[in-house]
Design a protein around this nucleic acid. Structure first.
Lengths: 201, 201
DNA sequence: GTCAAACAAATTGTTAACAATTTAGATATA
DNA sequence: TATATCTAAATTGTTAACAATTTGTTTGAC
């Protein structure tokens, strides 16, 4: 939740917007991302756009070819997705277990807010919003527990969601996350990890 | 092992050099990376340098702060390293298992060459060379089995090596990798995975 | 009509200049 | 001396122009 100066550091906000578009399937697979058009869309020059595209390339959601630019990365195979899921789960379990003992009242408040945001998005049934608030919730404890591994986690999570989003079953999403957060607020590590395992697959 | 046009696409080669420097401990922890100096060193303008720095930031070996540039990322905690090791192992096991059935004679030849390179580096006892050829060897089967996950793998591996490099025991490194490659050439998946598990920790 | 070569347009790669921000140092004041 | 404020230097952020590459189209020979 960092805030940036108004007229600078576009790269973060640009990559966030593009990432959301990608997660909600706004771009077709293998579709080339043109720097000029994106620059016009975001009202900047090509520089910051290139930064954002490179960042997303490193996350794995875009593919780069020298002198040909970047295009939407082809989706993971089912097997690859399984591996990614396992890695993300490994990482996020560690974060949960690390986070619960050190979590403050403030943290619990923030998490409750994020859960509310997710619920609202589910009720409106807006896929981009659901995907984003889902990630934001998980991201919170990852960032708190291990800022070093936050970007690693993000890359895995986004690609996992892009493959096939289980997010379409909104009621289930609310259920699952409510259970996780409940266990979290009760500082019950085992329970939280258990429900996390049910949610991430 | 892609080759790039002579006067373009500096970003890859620059980030490769900086990554090697980082792995061999050439920069102190928290030391700021100045764009100007790097540009001078590589004989380019700041643009490609910024690209390389951002790429390494996304890999997790550098840390970025808006308007303050990037600095060498503080090392992982022991616990975090354990998680990274587990994730890398999960990923690389999958790649080995996927790679062995589809490997060609050509692949075997390339792997043998890479193993030789590693052996030579070990004999010369040059840490940067050892680290690089170690990574190059592993990277080969990762790239062949799952190019989609190559950059994910690279980020994990580099950070794992940076934390504390077991590479100082050169004889052991030769032993371990010889066993892995031997199992690989014999298309023995179980054996290869077993020795891999002994190597990656 | 088909294929190949030459040309033109679109796109990416790089650079240098400028703007904004941060950092360090000098100066003044209590 | 210690502290605060102002100034200058260093550094990062952004932009537009130019270079190099790729891509699409036209032209011409057969």
């Amino acid at each position: 939740m960092k805030s940036f100066p108004q007229r600078q550091a576009y790269r973060e906000s640009i990559s966030n917007v593009i990432r959301r578009d990608l997660m909600s399937g706004k771009f077709k697979c293998d579709e080339p991302m043109r720097e000029q058009k994106l620059a016009a869309r975001f009202g900047t020059s090509r520089g910051p756009v290139r930064d954002a595209l490179m960042q997303l390339t490193q996350e794995g959601v875009l593919e780069y070819q020298p002198n040909k630019g970047v295009r939407v990365s082809s989706l993971l195979t089912d097997e690859e997705r399984d591996v990614v899921v396992a890695m993300r789960l490994e990482l996020e379990k560690y974060c949960i277990q690390k986070f619960i003992p050190i979590a403050t009242k403030e943290d619990f408040k923030n998490i409750s807010v994020l859960l509310e945001r997710l619920k609202n998005a589910c009720e409106v049934a807006s896929l981009p919003e659901v995907a984003e608030s889902d990630l934001a919730l998980h991201r919170y404890w990852v960032a708190q527990a291990s800022p070093h591994l936050e970007s690693t986690w993000l890359g895995l999570s986004v690609r996992m969601i892009m493959k096939y989003s289980r997010l379409e079953n909104y009621d289930q999403a609310i259920e699952e996350h409510s259970r996780i957060v409940e266990a979290l607020l009760g500082r019950n590590i085992d329970k939280a990890i258990y429900y996390l395992g049910e949610n991430i697959l």
